[in-house]
């Protein structure tokens, strides 16, 4: 997955290159940030990090009880 995401991010930078050169600094930063985030995800995936760390845990913690309660009252 690292390999594939590297190739993907590289090629998308090449495709967007002409736009990136004229883009605002904020846009470039966002662009790089998003790519970095997904590369990080890919690395984490390959390291089997996410079978231990559950990224959606806060949302689960927040919304699972009300849903369960909803199922309960029906």
């Amino acid at each position: 997955m690292i390999w594939l995401s590297l190739v993907a991010s590289l090629s998308m930078v090449v495709i967007d290159w002409s736009s990136l050169r004229t883009a605002k600094r904020r846009e470039v930063a966002l662009y790089i940030g998003l790519i970095g985030l997904s590369l990080g995800m890919a690395v984490g995936y390959e390291m089997n990090l996410f079978s231990k760390v559950h990224l959606l845990a806060p949302i689960d913690a927040l919304f699972r009880p009300p849903t369960k309660w909803l199922y309960h009252i029906l």
Binding site: W3, L4, V7, A8, S11, M12, V14, I15
Partner: peptide, 13 residues
């Protein structure tokens, strides 16, 4: 590049 990306997307895996 787009052609290459599409192709490599298919070829790499």
């Amino acid at each position: 590049v787009i052609v290459m990306v599409v192709l490599s997307a298919f070829l790499l895996p």
